[in-house]
Design a protein around this nucleic acid. Structure first.
Lengths: 347, 347
DNA sequence: TTGAAAGCGCTAACAC
DNA sequence: GTGTTAGCGCTTTCAA
């Protein structure tokens, strides 16, 4: 295979337009101090020759790399793909992130690193050194891992933290978990439920606590006790089953589960016990994956705007690189509730 | 934001190990002609300093870019993500492709281009110029688009064609569609079906014809007529419904549908008509997405090894770049049949 | 407002 | 075997 070089480079454009390399570069980067006339001439040459800058060369020149890394948890992501039951977190990130990137000539690269690895910093450093991305989008639980945020901060790379409100650098974005939990609780309350249980996620995820807080707030607003109605799971099916057992024991007539696996576990436990959903037990899921949508009955679910949040994260990163000033307050893009067949008034 | 440069470069390593840049480069690239002793010294320096080569600089040096592009159909892919019903083609490509890439220090970048666009060549050229990937993995229907394969061939970029057997350059890989269709047909025959209908995919996809051929071959082997038992759909729900109507009209007791949407359409049509699946109608899907797995009953499906095929495609591309000789024959990684509740003996 | 020169981190070609 | 040199395509000084 022949050593392949760029077909048309900035030099060709410069020659064609009869200007210097520098002027072409300025036009490409939309820099000021170029006469409209020059700019038009250069633009025309670019079109004619079909010139597209090489991102490797742009990076080498010391400017942007036009690469944004979406960092996900390796174990969980791969497990999701392997089981292929449609957990579409990554797809939604691609949908929102890739398309937004494309609008600005950027690319989104998915990277996986182990949360629990002791050499997580080395893994990430290697990826950063290899790719030299202009930004990194962190998802839970990476978004609240100080080893990761610290490294990014030291390296001076702009990053977004999805699902984290911790103070510090990096754009914080949430999907309004507190409000979503309140919404779910209120929905169940409005149906007439009073014993509303919550199967929470693990502490490792900040958002677990937010959801608990939202549920507690809603319960308190209705003067309802929460005493033994909370069970802390770890997002696994098994923990969901345990949680459902505990909450049924506590007399829950409705259960909110913090993800699809725990919801599914609850649904199947109910079935095993001969309980009708939603007749004997109402159920709200906190994920809107096919597992929830195609369950029988289809689960009322909190729908998380992953694509929108990722898109926003990309925007923030690109805007910061472009020198525009960044918002310092956390950004919330609220989840919504899709009411389906798993919730109904209690008997 | 400070202009960020590589923290530790090949120069640092060279200095640290007391050798020339070139020697370090040779070690990195596993080139011959380096004494084991030198190599060890360099390796040690690399470890100690935590050096990782910059992909951009490697590309600039004129060698590999360590980037492989996975090219998918824009419209279909985005629609899949938007509807988010778990069509996990891209996920499976990432699963197989990313992991294999990672083993060799490569990255997989997902790119979307419009099949029906008249400027498809410009779109692709731009992506190639920007990224300068070492290889491109084509999926249907791009894999049989001469505009695309022609361009890649002219540019001298190695590429893999998934789902294409057309002659010409590029590694051809299939998932044994002919055999899969035969397998599905034989399964139904073994259950006692004689009127087995097929809802085929559009001609735009080579594999549509292979599936028809497999079905025909299996039917012929059992001396069964195929006359009015074939309907050509276009992978849409609507066409699936039309196909199901036509085939039921023709007296089919079993239907094989070429994707999940058409299968779902068939299932729902049966339900509308009060037909029990599998009692009155057996159904085999050609996709194993959540739509098929979570349907009621769960659909017997052809399971396509997308991850494996992509992984293999990555291997082939990397091997070719490394100068190892490439297989010229098409590679088949056979699909399997997951028997579920939608197939049973006819009444 | 424009251009010339230097250098980014790496590899290819050649010399030693 | 190993080191030296000359770029790759671009951006960043800095000078005009």
């Amino acid at each position: 295979m022949a050593r392949r070089r760029q077909a048309v480079t900035i030099k060709h454009v410069a020659a064609d337009a009869g200007v210097s390399l520098q002027t072409v570069s300025r036009v490409i980067n939309k820099e000021p101090n170029v006469r409209p006339e020059m700019m038009a001439r250069v633009q025309e040459a670019i079109e004619r020759l079909g010139y597209v800058p090489s991102i490797a060369a742009q990076r080498m020149g010391g400017s942007r790399s036009y690469l944004i890394v979406a960092l996900n948890d390796r174990e969980r992501t791969i497990a999701g793909w392997r089981n292929h039951e449609g957990t579409d977190w990554v797809d939604q990130m691609l949908l929102g992130g890739m398309l937004k990137c494309a609008e600005h000539g950027y690319r989104l690269i998915v990277e996986l690193v182990d949360t629990h690895s002791d050499h997580i910093e080395r893994e990430l450093s290697a990826a950063l050194a290899a790719l030299q991305p202009d930004g990194v989008i962190l998802t839970p639980p990476h978004s609240q891992n100080p080893l990761i945020t610290g490294l990014l901060e030291r390296e001076g790379i702009s990053f977004a933290r999805i699902g984290s409100l911790a103070p510090g650098r990096g754009f914080a974005l949430t999907m309004g978990d507190t409000g979503a939990a309140e919404m779910a609780t209120d929905h169940l309350f409005a149906l007439g439920h009073r014993r509303i249980g919550l199967i929470a996620g693990p502490d490792e995820y900040e958002l677990s606590a937010w959801r608990v807080a939202g549920w507690r707030a809603a319960m308190a607003a209705h003067d309802l006790p929460t005493d033994d109605l909370m069970f802390q799971g770890d997002f696994s099916y098994e923990s969901g089953r345990q949680g459902a057992e505990a909450l049924l024991e506590a007399g829950a007539t409705a259960i909110i589960a913090s993800n699809d696996q725990m919801s599914l576990a609850t649904l199947l436990l109910a079935r095993d016990r001969g309980l009708d959903v939603p007749g004997d037990l109402s159920l709200v899921s906190f994920d809107d994956t096919p597992i929830a949508r195609f369950a029988h009955p289809p689960l009322t679910s909190v729908v998380q705007p992953i694509a929108e949040v990722t898109s926003r994260a990309v925007e923030l990163i690109i805007a910061e690189r472009a020198g525009r000033d960044a918002p310092t307050d956390p950004i919330e893009i609220a989840a919504s509730l899709a009411v389906r067949g798993s919730t109904a008034p209690p008997r």
